[in-house]
Design a protein around this nucleic acid. Sequence first.
DNA 1: CAATGAATTACAATCGATTGTACGACGCGT
DNA 2: ACGCGTCGTACAATCGATTGTAATTCATTG
Lengths: 355, 355
Amino acid sequence: MVAGSGKSNGEDNGTDTSAPQIEVRTLADLARVAGVSAGTVSRALAGKSLVNTETRERIQALARQYGFRPNQMASKLRSRRTGVIGVVIPLGHEKRQSISDPFFLTLLGHLADQLTDSGYDLMLSRAIPDGTTDWLERITGSGMVDGVLVIGQSDQSKIIDRVAANYRPLVVWGNHREGQVHCVVGTDNEHGGRLSAEHLIASGARRLAFLGDTTGIEIEMRHRGAAAAAQAAGLPLTHIPVALANAEMGPQIKAALAMPDLDYDGIVCASDLIAMSALRVLYETGRAVPDDTQIVGFDDLPLAAQTMPPLTTIRQEIGDGARVMVEKLKSRIEGEDTSSLAMAPTLIRRRTTLR
Amino acid sequence: MVAGSGKSNGEDNGTDTSAPQIEVRTLADLARVAGVSAGTVSRALAGKSLVNTETRERIQALARQYGFRPNQMASKLRSRRTGVIGVVIPLGHEKRQSISDPFFLTLLGHLADQLTDSGYDLMLSRAIPDGTTDWLERITGSGMVDGVLVIGQSDQSKIIDRVAANYRPLVVWGNHREGQVHCVVGTDNEHGGRLSAEHLIASGARRLAFLGDTTGIEIEMRHRGAAAAAQAAGLPLTHIPVALANAEMGPQIKAALAMPDLDYDGIVCASDLIAMSALRVLYETGRAVPDDTQIVGFDDLPLAAQTMPPLTTIRQEIGDGARVMVEKLKSRIEGEDTSSLAMAPTLIRRRTTLR
DNA sequence: CAATGAATTACAATCGATTGTACGACGCGT
DNA sequence: ACGCGTCGTACAATCGATTGTAATTCATTG
């Protein structure tokens, strides 16, 4: 019993008695200390049953004592499994090179939670498609991740499609479109846009405006839904493009809403952030919400409940979305095929609309 | 000359003529195609000068043609450099297992930008110190990252200190404290708290309240600064702890501010989010801001400019902070030593205070 | 008592790229 | 024509863990 003890402190007791100061960096080091082979140590630490229970516990104790942790690179190289999921945010049409969209950030937080719970690490990449079209391949082909999640398609849908044709473990957050190859999870944005406009109409609005830049497909679909609802009711809908970037948004909205020939009593906003800005602009210009002008946001971020008055908005289930994305990705890693999912958004009635 | 060429296309031209469909996954594969050795391919792709210009370009062209990308795991293992920085958010005293704090999320976004620009990848870990004390070692000791950034100390300062004693490339966002071993970058929270209270006092407030839970050291220091300013002016400051978690925050603040025996005309808030909630509660209870009650936030998140009225707040330079953190981390990776930095916060006057 | 087999453990190949060193070819000067 | 330096490339060791297979030990049984 305690076979290794004699060995370990028998060899190097020339200097000091308690010898926990040998550097134990590698499996081989620990194997030497334990008096076994590296392979055995590997199996012992992995908890495999092939190794004697007693030996295993002894080795595990030694590992703890020396604070030994196996090198992940070596492990991942050999086992051909990295335990890492790449999360990519393509900054497509957005000029500013910064991850700032609170919706994406919130989704990212939820993804981090889900992935951690599934035992995966998360590698975050900000991709700026600067003309090059291989920003995704750079990640999928690096051998560094077991799968990839893309947050938002931006205007890179075709590139994603091309990659997805050869790379299976890929799930995208965004708007599903006919004929799309890649697996996408997201909200039914058109439906959301329709809900928004319909609610405004039902609340008495007769002259609608849509606030948001429709370069990205998600917002384009929201606009389409709103436009469809307006058309069905025989009402006009004016499209006012405003950037998503926070800095420019305020002034842009201010300028847009102050246009003298623009007439509106109901605003469909492409995001809660836009709605919040609009709310402020309207307040400053003396228009009462919801009495003079009604507003509906999109996303239902936590802050939507904190505006004044609290924002009526279209809720996207971010937490559910993250969970579904991770589930589908895991299935795909297992080799299964998964279909896209468009989740139904819901209207959250608060106080920026009359009903 | 071209010793290997006979080998490569002599063997496998039996099937088809144009052969771009050979799987080229490894350096060796590409070497075979190019008729050179793996070592040469490695050097060619790395752009080393040891290899003939012509050969190099030929190999690079082939790599592009076959869409070859070297396996990162192997590369990192051999070169003992991962090009990855771990970013950890310790969820210390926060019960909810979710990354949601918008300030941290924003900082994370900036860090992602900075790290990307420096050629690093970012590996995100959410750490829930559930009794165990090795959540940091698990990351630093894994051999998977070249350095680690910790976002927020929470109540784990001692553990971080212990790790920092043996692990150099570590930089923390948080509040510097005397005798702290690890390198921390952050705002001078005490100063910020003082600025906040002083401004309220200068604006005429006489009965102060502090809204925020002081379990984390950052907020504790903000409270301390505010308390010092109040004491210096001979004024009272009531401490009202409220959680940071969004869900509970609203009702908690509502209950707290409605306490009948609580008297206040100036509120120091521990964060913009808290301030925003307070703003709403005050509005609902019919107290005018800033005329009846003045409020100062903390952080100066983008949304602070969008509240109604726009929020006077203490600005933390998140972008600068991220830049400094990454710079210091790079220095430490190079082996240099770096000192902590407490950045001076600034008061941003908007409309929730009278001056 | 030898043979069989179960349980452990050692040995060695492997994952794929990097890098130091050795080797061959070429041009040059004398 | 021979020796020498330069340039380019091949060869092989290496990073550190994993894993299939061989080898060892020990108990058991015909």
